[in-house]
Design a protein around this nucleic acid. Structure first.
Lengths: 139, 139
DNA sequence: GATTGACCTTCCCGTGACTGGAATCCCCAT
DNA sequence: ATGGGGATTCCAGTCACGGGAAGGTCAATC
């Protein structure tokens, strides 16, 4: 398969596939003319990667997942642990966003939104208290 | 005020403040020795920026907010519109994350998480359907 | 006056995960 | 041979900074 075909089948841009090769996530063969020659296994990996990415796993997490995927003697506990950690990160992000949402919604509610210049959103940003939770979790 | 003092008072890293000057968000004066000389107005703007950023506004949105903040003849409707658009983006992100969370939680629930290699998470990623909503909203 | 040491300055590189574009090469059909 | 649609590489840019080097400045101490 050439790159265009895999791209369509895996639902990823060709650019992304080249990038994944560059960082060592896949290793397609090469034809005599220099074109990448993808096997079914490459397509499977790319599809896997696309799904993992769409669930928000980082590239490095994807690399780990892919290693587990390929390791016939893995323990499912390892996969589950990785997934649970990621679930935790998702939950954290949701909480952060909800806190922003709450603060901002308050400000918006209190703003008349007319032709006059008085605006509680601006004064709130200028002198209000700092949002909510810590913007970025302290390590 | 020197940069360290403003940094502490505004709650921003000095690096960030230099960056904000570089991209034209603030224009502090300069002392004879080349040091930045911050006025109270600079501090106010930086504080404003820090809060807006912590609510998730992008730099360009912050630039727009700052312009409104400084424009005595603004209409509060303009500010409100900007804030509401941002609220919409926050809500979208939350929905995306919740969809990921739901899908991934399902997978995690179905995984035994023991020493055996069988793992519904991996098979789900390899052959499952594509997550949920579109990962990235089409523009 | 010399030497600390804590500031400040600029400059350049790196991050994550790509995306866009230029220049070049290859294959196939007319 | 010419054209068009592939493919390849490499370089630069994105966003919002952070790290660190190399060097100038300030205040205080010896």
């Amino acid at each position: 398969m050439n790159i265009r075909e895999v791209a369509e089948r895996a639902g990823l841009p060709a650019k992304t596939i080249r990038y994944y090769e560059e960082i060592g996530l896949i290793r397609p063969l090469r034809a005599a003319n220099g074109y990448r020659a993808f096997r079914d296994s490459d397509l499977h990996k790319l599809t896997f990667l696309g799904r993992a990415r769409s669930l928000g796993f980082s590239i490095e997490e994807c690399r780990a997942l892919l290693a587990l995927y390929e390791d016939q003697s893995r323990a499912s506990a390892d996969v589950k642990a990785l997934a649970e950690r990621h679930l935790g990160q998702i939950a954290e992000k949701i909480e952060e966003l909800k806190a922003m949402q709450a603060t901002l919604a308050d400000l918006v509610r209190s703003c008349a939104g007319d032709h006059r210049p008085d605006c509680p959103i601006l004064t709130g940003l200028a002198s209000g208290k700092t949002c909510c939770t810590d913007e970025k979790a302290r390590p």
